[in-house]
Each structure stands twice: as C-alpha cells, then as structure tokens.
Nucleic acid binder design. Structure first.
Lengths: 108, 108
DNA sequence: TTATTATATAAGCATACGATTATATAATTA
DNA sequence: TAATTATATAATCGTATGCTTATATAATAA
C-alpha cells in the first residue's frame, strides 16, 4: 500500500515537537530561518536540517529573498497534514507559551 | 507548549507504516493480535509491541475475549488523529493491496 | 575587497526505534 | 494434567534520528 507508506513518511516528520511547532507557526505566515532560531531552542544548523527534511517531503516551500530564505506551508494537496495543523495552536499561543511574543524579524 | 509536545508524541506513532496500517484497519472494526500477524509482514512480538505503544498513548484500547485480545481505536477525544485516519484507505483497499482479502479470524 | 550576516552542508555522537529470537504468561483443549 | 494456542515481555542488534560543532557558500554592507 504505497499510499500508507508515503503518508507514514510525512507523518513521521510531524512527530517531532520542533518541526510540529515550526509547521504550526507557518499556518499564519512564512518565516525565515533566523526567526525559527530565535524562537526555538535549537541551533541554526538544527533548524536548517529540519526544514530540509520538510522540504524534501514537499510539506514546505522556500522563498529566497536576498540573503534570507522564507519557508511556508505547501499542504494544499496533503489533506491529512492540513487537518492535523488545523488542530494545532496558532502562532500567538505558541509564542506566548514560549515567552517569545516580542520577536519580529530579529535577524539583523 | 505542552499541547504540541503531546501531539508530536502521538503523531510520531502514526509515522510508521505498520502502525498506520493497523490504525487504518481499526477504522472498520476491532482486530485481534493474530489477525495483524497474518496481515502484516511482521512477527507476533513485533505486532504486540506496536500495539503496546499505541495503547500507552491512549490511541487504541483493548478488549480481552478469552485468550484473544482485540484492539480498537480510541480516538474520539483526539480530533487530529481522527482526521488523519479519515483520510487513510479503508480495510478493503488495504487488504486488497496486500493480497490478504481472504483472511477472516485465521487465528485457530 | 573585506567583513558581516544568513543559510546550508558535513561530520560526529548519543539515543531512539523497529525488528528479531527466546522466553514467559495465560487461556483453552485433549 | 499436559499440550496447544494467543499474547506479552526481555534481550539484542542494526539503523535512523536529532542534536551539536565546524566549515562552506552566498548575499549584503563597509
């Protein structure tokens, strides 16, 4: 059952707290790598690697703007992923819980 | 964000082909361990351990009937898991793809 | 051009995971 | 009671995962 195999591969990526947080944040807007680094307790290479995996599975897409790379959701054709994210908290709640409500493109 | 942590833990369990198949089958009815052993290409202890993890996260519940233990979904209070499973193939499609349409409580 | 900033890639490492075989427990049947 | 059947647990093992530090690449700014 190829469909289940592929779905499992993608769901596996949602089964990580850091990635699930990033994806939930991306429900609102696109974010650049350095913003995730500021928000999440993880190194910059760590963030990049999570995003690489998500992109490899087509779950996110990138948008290069000068030296910044913005990542956003690409789940319109992945209904079960979309459904999961719809049940996750929104950016405001996430940032508030992480005490990071102040961040705004800190990357300078 | 405790909610994301917990959700990630549960989604991690869906991110495995074998478990996702079992859960999708359970959309239709409860199944005993030996049925899963017949259907999936995995040993009996392997099946038991997958079910133990699913039960530990409250995703399935068991129903002991004599020497058989039947497992079924317990996702009414887990909307995002429910949503994922609703997008997965049904038992008929799964068994057909695995060439296992014949099985019917083979455990004898 | 040189320095700075943003991102990606590589290498290494500890831990988690999925599977197996062996064995234990429990219920059923002879 | 002994044998069979169903399930669970334990021990083991190879591989995958997530993280880090170090380094490379690319774009911007001085």
């Amino acid at each position: 059952m190829e469909r289940l195999h592929d779905a499992a591969e993608k769901l596996k990526l949602l089964g990580d707290k850091t990635r699930l947080t990033m994806l939930s944040l991306m429900k609102e807007r696109e974010w650049c790598v350095c913003e995730f680094v500021d928000i999440l307790d993880i190194s910059q290479p760590g963030v990049s690697q999570h995003l690489r995996k998500l992109k490899a599975q087509g779950i996110v897409k990138e948008n290069k703007q000068g030296q910044w790379v913005y990542y956003s959701l690409n789940v319109e054709d992945k209904p079960y992923i979309k459904a999961v994210l719809e049940h996750m908290p929104d950016s405001k709640a996430i940032l508030s819980a992480l005490n990071k409500e102040g961040i705004k493109s800190i990357c300078k």
